[in-house]
Each structure stands twice: as structure tokens, then as C-alpha cells.
Amino acid sequence: MKKIEAIIQPFKLEEVKESLKAIGIDGMTITEVRGHGRQKGHKEVYRGQEYTVDLLPKVKLEMVVADDRYEEVVQKLAFSARTGKIGDGKIFVYEVAEAIRIRNNDRGETAL
């Protein structure tokens, strides 16, 4: 099993969710986060005051998928989250040691 963690642009969330749903992935955890990478903050001027936006709003998606699915999921995810501009985000993939469904103690991929 692999855990896929993706940081994406907030406005891409619906599109990404839809495209993952289309390949049968509908369980995921979504968090509103802030951060910055090489896409540094920018400046906004209001009332003569400069608002520097250091940390940009992003959305983090987390999901765990079976080993034989993760390539496909990552590809779909990257494709649907892409605008081609700086700030599109990143995807990280981790190995998962175990998955347990709390309700009935299912283990491994059946618990996903």
C-alpha cells in the first residue's frame, strides 16, 4: 500500500476530486493548509498599505491506495491539478506498513 499526499491549488480541488472519483478513488482526507515553496508570496496594496502574502493558501489531499493502483492515481492527480504555472503543488508517495479498519479490524488492502 502507498500513501499519496498532494499539495494542490485550492481552485483545483473539485477537478481533482472528480477525476479521482472517475477511477474509483473516493476516500480521501482534505485539509486547508498554507505554505510556500519556490512560489514565493506576493504583494497586494490596499489603502496604501502593502499586504505581503508570504504563505499561500493550499489544499492538502491524503489517500492510501493499493500498490498496483498508485501509478495510475498519481498520474490522474498530477494531470488534473496541473495549470503549468508556478504554484501548482507537489505529490509525495510513502510506503504504508499497515491499514486497519477500526470498526471490524479488517487489515491490509481490504481495510482501504
Binding site: 496594496v45 502574502v53 493558501p57
Partner: peptide, 18 residues
């Protein structure tokens, strides 16, 4: 209305205002 969302809305205000 998390601080995150309140910020997002304010960003919209700023860009349209600009």
C-alpha cells in the same frame, strides 16, 4: 469560516479592488 477561508475571501476582495 476558517481563518483560511476568511483570507481567501479577502484576497478576492483585494484583487477585484485592485
Amino acid at each position: 469560516m476558517t481563518p483560511w477561508r476568511a483570507d481567501q475571501l479577502w484576497q478576492v476582495y483585494l484583487i477585484v479592488h485592485a
